[in-house]
Computed example of a mutant assay.
Amino acid sequence: MINRRLLLRTSGAAAAGALGTAALSVPAGATESGGHTDPTSGVTRTLLQEHPSPAKGWKAVQTLVQIPRHKESGRHSHPGIEVGYIIRGDVLMEFDDRPPLRLRTGDPFFIPTGAIHNARNVGRVTTMMLSTYTVDETKPLVTTY
């Protein structure tokens, strides 16, 4: 049976391969790489719902993204738009092609198709973001850089 509240790690492979297949759980503990703590360790994306879009070849995906204190999502993009809302916390949304955007509890945000961005938790609690994507169904939800 498929767990509809699928826990995904912020990675293109997990997001692409695990949606609609089986539950995937990733430990939230920090990993060591070259003597430095991974800045993305503990970041999770929980699949809330996924539906075909009225537009052929597209789908709608909704997730709950959680970013622990002092952590970040890592630079990534999506094959479609992301419309989001900060449920709790403070985020510095960094972009490759524009100035960063400071987001706080209650703020909405919009990320254009293909925009490379990084959500950095700059607050004192685990950030929770509700993210809804309209994406190309043939591509991974997340591509990391």
Rank of each mutant, 00 (worst) to 15 (best):
M1R: 09
A22F: 11
R75A: 13
L24Y: 04
H117P: 10
K71H: 15
L101H: 13
P52N: 09
T63S: 02
T46Q: 11
P39G: 03
A14T: 13
T127I: 10
R45F: 00
H51I: 04
Q66S: 06
R69K: 07
S77M: 13
H76S: 09
E94V: 14
E82Q: 14
L141M: 06
T31Y: 04
M129W: 01
G89F: 03
R75Q: 14
R4W: 02
G20F: 13
H78M: 03
L7Y: 05
V135L: 08
T127D: 05
P112K: 10
A30D: 15
T40K: 14
L47H: 02
Y133F: 12
A14L: 11
G123N: 09
Q49Y: 12
T144W: 00
T37M: 11
G20P: 12
V135H: 02
P39Q: 04
G84N: 07
S131C: 03
M128W: 07
G42M: 07
N3M: 00
G12T: 01
T127E: 06
V43L: 02
H36C: 04
T113M: 12
I2C: 00
A115E: 12
H70S: 12
G17A: 15
E94I: 13
M129I: 10
V83A: 12
M1F: 11
E50P: 00
I87T: 10
R45L: 08
G57D: 12
T40V: 12
A30R: 10
S25C: 05
W58K: 12
I86R: 02
L8K: 02
G89R: 01
I87C: 02
T143G: 03
A16W: 12
D136H: 04
N3E: 10
A16M: 09
G114A: 14
V125N: 02
R120I: 12
D136Q: 06
T113Q: 15
V83T: 13
R102H: 10
G84H: 05
T63I: 14
E94C: 08
T44I: 00
A115C: 06
H117V: 11
P79A: 07
T138W: 00
N121C: 09
L8E: 03
G74A: 11
T144P: 01
Q49P: 00
R9G: 05
V26L: 10
A18L: 15
T138P: 00
V135C: 02
G12R: 03
V142W: 04
S33M: 09
T127N: 04
E137N: 13
A28H: 04
V83W: 07
R104C: 09
A115Y: 03
V142Y: 08
S33D: 13
L101W: 10
R45P: 01
L101G: 06
T143L: 06
T44C: 00
S131T: 07
L130M: 12
H78F: 04
L6Y: 03
L103F: 02
L7M: 11
T144C: 08
L48F: 00
T127C: 07
D96S: 15
R102V: 14
P108G: 13
